[in-house]
Amino acid sequence: MTGVFLTILKRDLLLTIRQSTDVALVMAFFVVAAALFPFGVGPGPETLGRIAPGIVWVLALLAVMLSLDRLFQQDWEDGALELITLTPAPLPILVLGKAAAHWIGTGLPLIALAPLLGIMLNLTETAYPILIAGLALGTPSLSLIGAVGAALTLGARRAGLLMALLVLPLYIPVLIFGVTAVDAAVAGFSVRPHFLYLGAILLASLALAPLAAAAAIRNAVE
């Protein structure tokens, strides 16, 4: 079982590396969109610093969402997805492998760029470790929940828009606990409960999202 998980993870990572402009574009969006906020709300360091964690998290959600079509869309279009469903390997494990590759190709670079956004937006110094840790705990859930949305919208017209409507509401809990963890740290409270919630969301999506996405894929290839 770990064998097929690693097989599909390796293949998707290889594809991500060979088509790295896809990743670069999403990361460029992440940075450029953040650069808009000083123009929109004014360059006052205090205002920006106050809303910085929220901006970073919202943009991380949007960046993940923009890259979700990479998960299944290509495989669906060229016929590979139906062949993948025809292998004897359990489909939820394969979905998990694809979601893991998606996280490495999207979540990790986002985490690496987050400090840069923090500097641009005058984030308080004490907030950095919590923001990074929160993203590390929260972005895998975004990839997993996103996989369900991506699988459900396979073959739909305007799939990207439909996917956003499906997935963004489900991202709200991750957003809430990611941001409140940073706020708690800045205000001197314990971040533990917020991280526990993020961890619980991750465990729940690890258990449920691959099953739901696999069912949606079987439906899409029929």
Partner: peptide
């Protein structure tokens, strides 16, 4: 599924992978 090989209209090839990498993937996956 372990008994069936299906070859449809679509070739299911990844433009960024070499011929060997593509076949190796299907070989490793069942």
């Amino acid at each position: 599924r372990a008994r069936v090989s299906y070859c449809g209209h679509q070739e299911a090839l990844k433009s960024a992978l070499t011929v060997r990498e593509g076949l190796q993937f299907w070989a490793d996956l069942g």
